[in-house]
C-alpha cells in the first residue's frame, strides 16, 4: 500500500519534472539567437591547437583536463571490473563457436576492424574520429573475437593487463606534466609539438580504452561454479 503510494508520488514527480523541463526549454528556445562566444573563440584559437578538427582540439587541448579525468573514470571502471573478476580460465568453453564459417569471417573481419580503428585515430586530427571512437572499435573487435572464443591471454588479470589499462592514461599524464616542468601550466603542450603529442596521447588512449572496455566485458562472472569469496567482516 505504502509502496503503491510511493510509486504514484514518484510518477507524479517525474511528470511534473517533464512539464517543468518542457517549460524551461520553451523559454530557452525563445531567446534571441546571437553569436556564440565560445565558437568564435574556438575558431580563433584553433590554429594554435596543433590539430585542425575543432572537436579534437577541444577534447585534447583546450579542455584536455576533462578528458584526462574522464579517462580516469574509465580506468576506475576497469579496475573495479578486474578486481571483481574471479575467473581463472578466460576462455569460456560454452562460448566457443564451432561454426567454421564464423571463424573464417572473423579472421577476415577482425584485422579490418583494427585497421579501421587505426584510420579513425589518424583521421581524428582533421575530421570526425579520434581516440575514443578508435578505442571503442578495438573493444568491439575484441568482444567479437571473444564471443567467437578466440584466446586472449593478455586479458588474464595480471601485470600485463593492468599496465595496458593505464598505458594511455600514464602517457597522457606524463605529457601533461611536461608543460608544468617547463614552467608553464599543467597540461600545456610545448610549442610546436602539440600536434605530434596529441597523436601520441590518442594512440595510447585508443589502446587503453579498447582494453578497459574489453576487460569490463570479460570480467563479468560467467562460470556458475566459481567461488563466492566474501570479504572479512567490517
Amino acid at each position: 500500500m505504502i509502496e503503491r503510494a510511493r510509486q504514484a508520488l514518484l510518477g507524479a514527480a517525474c511528470l511534473l519534472f517533464t512539464v517543468c523541463l518542457l517549460w524551461a526549454v520553451r523559454h530557452l528556445v525563445a531567446l534571441p539567437a546571437e553569436q556564440q562566444a565560445l565558437s568564435v573563440l574556438l575558431s580563433r584559437w584553433l590554429p594554435d591547437s596543433g590539430v585542425s578538427h575543432p572537436v579534437t582540439a577541444v577534447l585534447l587541448n583546450f579542455r584536455s583536463y576533462d578528458t584526462l579525468l574522464e579517462i580516469g573514470v574509465l580506468v576506475i571502471a576497469g579496475m573495479v571490473g578486474i578486481s571483481l573478476a574471479r575467473t581463472s580460465a578466460l576462455e569460456d568453453p560454452a562460448m566457443r563457436s564451432a561454426d567454421p564459417l564464423l571463424h573464417a569471417l572473423l579472421r577476415l573481419f577482425l584485422p579490418l576492424l583494427v585497421l579501421l580503428a587505426g584510420w579513425l585515430l589518424w583521421a581524428g586530427s582533421s575530421r570526425p574520429g579520434g581516440a575514443f571512437q578508435a578505442g571503442a572499435l578495438l573493444a568491439a573487435a575484441g568482444v567479437l573475437g571473444r564471443l567467437a572464443g578466440l584466446p586472449m591471454a593478455f586479458l588474464r588479470p595480471g601485470t600485463l593487463l593492468r599496465a595496458g589499462l593505464v598505458l594511455g592514461f600514464s602517457v597522457f599524464l606524463l605529457i601533461a606534466l611536461l608543460g608544468a616542468l617547463d614552467g608553464r601550466a599543467f597540461l600545456a603542450y610545448p610549442p610546436g609539438l602539440a600536434g605530434a603529442l596529441i597523436l601520441v596521447i590518442e594512440a595510447g588512449l585508443s589502446l587503453s580504452i579498447g582494453m578497459i572496455l574489453l576487460a569490463l566485458f570479460v570480467s563479468a562472472p560467467v562460470a556458475p561454479e566459481e567461488d563466492a569469496d566474501g570479504g572479512p567482516p567490517a
Binding site: 579513425l120 574520429g129 575514443f132 573493444a139 568491439a140 568482444v143 572496455l213 562472472p221 560467467v222
Partner: peptide, 24 residues
C-alpha cells in the same frame, strides 16, 4: 563525431554488453 561514437557504443558495445548480461 558523436554519431560515430554512438554507433559504436550505443548500438554496438553497450548492446552486446546488455545482451550478454540478459543471457547470463
Amino acid at each position: 563525431d558523436i554519431a560515430l561514437a554512438e554507433a559504436i557504443i550505443g548500438a554496438g558495445l553497450s548492446g552486446v554488453l546488455f545482451l550478454d548480461a540478459v543471457s547470463h
